[in-house]
């Protein structure tokens, strides 16, 4: 998805994991995924650099769809559609 599409994406659930270090954001994503339905979109906010690689890899392995990442000032938003 393009950056513009990501910024206007309708998000089902958003989790703010900016206060945690690895693997905090990943565990927050896993927990949140258990609370939404297939086809729903999860947004994870993280300030942990490693998460940018971690969550896409994890999402693909778990048969979710990684939609993309948007960089903000001092953190980023990662979007994943539940498989």
């Amino acid at each position: 998805m393009t950056q513009e599409e990501l910024t206007t994406l309708e998000v089902t659930k958003s989790v703010d994991a900016r206060g945690t270090s690895c693997p905090g954001p990943l565990l927050a994503a896993k927990k949140a995924m258990g609370e939404i339905n297939s086809g729903d979109v999860l947004e994870v906010l993280s300030a942990d650099e490693g998460t940018k690689k971690d969550i896409p890899k994890w999402a693909t392995k778990k048969k979710h769809e990684y939609l993309g990442t948007v960089e903000e000032s001092g953190f980023f938003k990662i979007f994943v559609k539940k498989g």
Binding site: C22, P23, G24, L26, L27, A29, K30, W58, K61, K62
Partner: peptide, 8 residues
């Protein structure tokens, strides 16, 4: 272990 838990 955190990574492994996330990976079920």
């Amino acid at each position: 272990m955190g990574g492994a838990v996330a990976d079920d």
